[in-house]
Amino acid sequence: MTNLTWSRGELTLLKNCPACKHHIDYEPIYKRGDDEKLMPEEWHIYNCFYCKSFFVNPRPSENSLPALYRDYLTHKPVQREAVFTSSSIFWKLVRGYLSKQLDIRFDQKSLAIGGFVA
Rank of each mutant, 00 (worst) to 15 (best):
F49A: 11
I24F: 02
F84T: 05
N57A: 07
C20F: 01
S53K: 06
S99R: 14
N3R: 14
K52A: 15
R8A: 10
A19C: 09
L98R: 07
Y72V: 03
K76D: 08
F54P: 00
F55Y: 09
E81Q: 13
Q79W: 00
P77W: 01
K109V: 15
A118R: 02
R105E: 15
S88R: 03
G33F: 00
Q101H: 08
E62V: 12
H23I: 07
C51S: 06
S99G: 10
G114C: 04
G96E: 04
T12A: 10
E62C: 05
A67M: 13
P40R: 09
D25G: 05
R32I: 03
R95F: 03
K31Q: 14
S53V: 15
L98I: 07
T12Y: 01
G9M: 06
Y30M: 14
E27L: 09
I113V: 15
S7A: 14
D25C: 03
V83L: 08
F116M: 07
K15L: 08
Q108H: 05
L102K: 13
P18A: 04
V94S: 05
Y69E: 05
S61K: 07
E41W: 01
R59Q: 15
S88N: 06
T74A: 08
G96I: 05
D103Y: 01
T85W: 00
I29P: 00
A112N: 10
C17S: 06
N3G: 00
S110E: 12
W91T: 04
N57C: 09
T12R: 09
L13H: 10
C20P: 02
W6Y: 11
M39D: 04
S86V: 03
Q108W: 00
L93E: 02
E42M: 12
M39H: 12
I45A: 09
